[in-house]
């Protein structure tokens, strides 16, 4: 069985736009038959949430990346999830990286 990834989507508000980003990510992952658990967090809460569950990927949907994310976690700039343009490339690159890491 393939590993189920844990992905954090982070932005400033964890409300309106984050749910749009989350929905877009889910759709893109479903289209590739990838099963993943996605959580939305506010950027300020990231350090604590990363310690708590250790996600495979952190996607920064909006704004600056906080300096304090551990190096072994993949950080992706998620602007495509905000704009709607370039989502396929973002998701493909992310999955390639994750597979290589396991392999």
């Amino acid at each position: 069985m393939e590993k189920k990834y844990l992905i954090y989507v982070a932005c400033g508000s964890a409300a309106a736009s984050a749910s749009l980003a989350r929905r877009r990510l889910i759709d893109a992952l479903n289209a590739r038959n990838i099963d993943a658990e996605i959580e939305i967090h506010r950027i300020t809460e990231l350090p604590g949430q990363i310690e708590a569950r250790k996600p495979d990927v952190v996607i920064i949907a909006a704004g600056q990346t906080p300096a304090s994310i551990p190096e072994n976690i993949l950080v992706v700039k998620g602007i495509p999830l905000m704009t709607g343009f370039g989502i396929d490339k973002l998701v493909d690159d992310m999955l390639t990286f994750l597979k290589n890491k396991e392999g």
Partner: peptide, 17 residues
């Protein structure tokens, strides 16, 4: 340029917050 929502951008900016 793609127009996006400024809300989450402002709320992710440490100075603004």
């Amino acid at each position: 340029l793609i127009g996006i929502d400024a809300g989450p951008i402002g709320l992710a900016n440490p100075t603004s917050v």
